[in-house]
């Protein structure tokens, strides 16, 4: 089988701050990382590669510096890397992004399984995976914990409200992954990094994948950001100094006043 993994470079969002005076993002100095959910999805794909000898291709879209995450994926064991990079992609919302990604995947040929993280930590939308599946006309299984392949059967364990499901699909299918418990991202060894430099790596433009300009970037995006602003300030709390016993008394008083504990 051929497997594709959609990956994204994201700012380490716990470190993105907003300038309270100008209302703009302070991006300088914020490290970029491989989106953790995508990293987990990549490892799921690589596990299948080890078991079944599948080929794994990673596909990303982003500015030229996003090469770093594709290169990382190659060092972690992916066989081939693609970065879709073009000024025409700038400002794309999830619709336009999935349009471009689907075009890139089509150029690669038939993929039996396409993996993606359930969401990216910078946008948290969880929309791009399903939208790519729709653009490719293939089914999707979202929010999966584990995937196995048995012949042509693709078996996925999916989280649902209050439980889980075991689902079966046939190629092609797009699967988005949640993160496993106690999972920590793997780091490649130095020899693996070195070896990855020889693996096939393509940088494709919109024209290379046949993506039409009218469906890309701001122009092709149905959603528009109208305004960005710092989160609203609310009325300040009734404040108490609470060192030691004093704080405990105050909390007890509040809990009584609000009827959470008896008098």
């Amino acid at each position: 089988m051929n497997i594709a993994v959609l990956i994204k470079q994201v700012p380490d969002s716990t470190e993105v701050k907003i300038n309270p005076e100008t209302g703009t993002l302070i991006r300088a100095g914020v490290p970029s990382i491989l989106n953790p959910y995508d990293h987990y999805a990549l490892e799921a794909a690589l596990e299948l590669k080890r078991k079944h000898n599948f080929k794994v291709t990673v596909v990303s879209m982003g500015p030229p510096q996003a090469k770093a995450v594709v290169q990382l994926a190659l060092a972690l064991g992916a066989d081939e890397g693609v970065l879709l990079s073009d000024m025409a992609f700038a400002g794309s919302d999830t619709w336009a992004t999935s349009y471009a990604l689907a075009k890139g995947i089509k150029k690669l040929g038939k993929m039996d399984i396409i993996f993606a993280g359930m969401q990216a930590i910078d946008g948290d939308t969880a929309q791009t995976g399903p939208a790519v599946a729709q653009q490719l006309g293939i089914p999707q299984i979202t929010f999966c914990e584990h995937v196995e392949v048995d012949g042509r059967r693709i078996l996925a364990r999916k989280q649902i409200d209050g439980g889980h499901e075991l689902l079966e699909a046939r190629p092609s299918v797009l699967i988005t992954m949640i993160m496993g418990k106690d999972w920590a991202p793997k780091h490649p060894s130095f020899p693996a990094v070195h070896a990855s430099l020889k693996k096939p790596f393509h940088v494709w433009s919109a024209a290379d994948v046949g993506a039409e300009a009218q469906y890309l970037g701001l122009k092709g995006s149905p959603t528009q950001v109208n305004k960005i602003y710092p989160p609203p300030q609310r009325e300040k709390a009734a404040m108490f100094s609470g060192s030691g016993q004093q704080g405990v008394e105050k909390i007890l008083e509040v809990l009584k006043a609000e009827h959470f504990i008896g008098e």
Partner: peptide, 14 residues
Amino acid sequence: PAFGGNIMADILAP
């Protein structure tokens, strides 16, 4: 909220 929640965004689909 956007960008990990450090900022709010108003979105339109006109």
